[in-house]
Design a protein around this nucleic acid. Sequence first.
DNA 1: CTGAAAGCGCTTACAG
DNA 2: CTGAAAGCGCTTACAG
Lengths: 334, 334
Amino acid sequence: MKQELVGRRPTIYDVASAAGVSKSLVSLVLRGAPGVSPARRAAVEDAIQRLNYRPSRAAATLAANRSRTVGVVLDDYRNLWFVELLAGLHRELAPRGFRVAVADPSFNMETDRSVVDGLMSLPVDAIVIATETPEETLGAIDVPAVVAGNRDIDIPGADIVANDDLAGARLATEHLIEQGHREIGHVTGSGGAARLRAQGFEEVMHEQGLRARIERQQLTMEPDGYNAALRLLDRNPSLTAIFAANDTMALGVAGAAKDRGRRIPEDLSLIGYDNSPLASSNLLRLTTINDRSKTVGVEAAKALLWRMENPSAPSHTKLIQPELVVRASTQHHG
Amino acid sequence: MKQELVGRRPTIYDVASAAGVSKSLVSLVLRGAPGVSPARRAAVEDAIQRLNYRPSRAAATLAANRSRTVGVVLDDYRNLWFVELLAGLHRELAPRGFRVAVADPSFNMETDRSVVDGLMSLPVDAIVIATETPEETLGAIDVPAVVAGNRDIDIPGADIVANDDLAGARLATEHLIEQGHREIGHVTGSGGAARLRAQGFEEVMHEQGLRARIERQQLTMEPDGYNAALRLLDRNPSLTAIFAANDTMALGVAGAAKDRGRRIPEDLSLIGYDNSPLASSNLLRLTTINDRSKTVGVEAAKALLWRMENPSAPSHTKLIQPELVVRASTQHHG
DNA sequence: CTGAAAGCGCTTACAG
DNA sequence: CTGAAAGCGCTTACAG
């Protein structure tokens, strides 16, 4: 008689014998396969409960040569846009049995050679690139991939799903112009999305025969918005509105406005980008552009699922249309 | 002659034959074992580079029966305190070859039965609980565990590492009293940390013979801070200072103060908790309590590493002392 | 250090 | 549906 090892983790064999079925049947039930009789399925599920059985992902991955996991490469956990992106990805992928695993470039770099290497050795069946990190630093990607939220990164064979930054920046600028503003400044950074937003601002201003005053920083964080806005306001006292490349920079602009004694929106209209939780705060009540990150996530997941079936089809770019969200930080001028 | 399958993922066998060594030696090099001659080590590493070999985590985990991965259960990605916690955990764990894997309770619940089940089937060698979610919802934990950042959760056998919320709240309250404030309100929520912070506030106020006015909400987000502060200010117009249970609520308080025409700090001093990026923003310049999340992460990792060696030792609680961070949102009164 | 062997817990394909 | 078998890519222990 075989010794029963106390505390040993139960396996598919234990479940099979407890349920009085074969281990092949247990495997079928675990994968939710059709053609299993309800009675046997119930017996297996009951045994799983009783034994507190948890399938070994390592064994399943090794045997099946796929993990049903999608890896997401993030930039920085501080950029909250990824929260909605993950929610969208998850909504599409979970019902199809896929897990979502997150990695950010600064992480696990001592144990893995690069973010992507880390995900690949996990392993993941597909990858979502949600970072502005240069392509070179990512490492080789040999699974289906989609670039989400950034149109500037070039991964051969990868699809692209992103909010249309150019269109969003145009919406923001047009909103200010419709409110009668003519002296409008823009504070921005130097990433790919920031560049497109600055371009949209410039286009509309020039179309209207207006001067586009742009103050560009390296990054797009709060201090960058603050510093850029101070320079903009000090050099152009006649400015009546500022468009910030994102909501975080807009927070910095609001700080600069306060320090210069300019009330928002009475003395200065302010518009951001992203529709982050910050924008809806009662202190800011920030007019902004909704970048629709959740939709980007949903569409990125769809693109990935499609590409897993069609690995060698030509890659596509899908742009999600952003939306203007009007709050109290912008008002009519003149 | 054996067929070379194009595109097949290289294995330890391929590396061994490319380097002209045995596969046992490759395994030793991968695990950084001592007693391998520099020449052979170099040959193996060269072969790994040439073949673009990536070890299979699934196979290694299955064979060794451990994954060298620590799982972290988070509450919500929106609570940014976890960023520093992860940095601290990572700093201690990475040099010892451990990876960090993140899970949040709302995630992967369709594919896994509970967060912990999800991590266990990954599998992880140890777990960090960084959530205020009730114990019952976590599922059974049968690996070493440490509760980080929360003293209220009770997991049998788990160590606890947390910022001393009681002491931090006392620091905040004492700071306001030292500045001459006597009419002080507190806005808070109903979680474990919030309760301790309210208790610290109450203790100090009562020790000083002052009345502790507390407005408690369900959650601790910005709208909760806003609503609580409106009620507090409307009922107690003589209030000269407010202590918010965290920086996010403090943002809400600032919004309420603005709506009631109270300038910060001239008409109302405001202190938060957490020292989040929000606190250092130029718009708020918020005096706050640094909860030292990074140190909590470092100490949690140490506790975990120790417990993996001493599985049955009695569990310990380690409290990290928080620090007052003075900025412009508080000032002398009277 | 090598080399042959067993085994981790699954999936998969197959004969019945 | 069952049952026996092979195999996924590693780790581990062992004889040499």
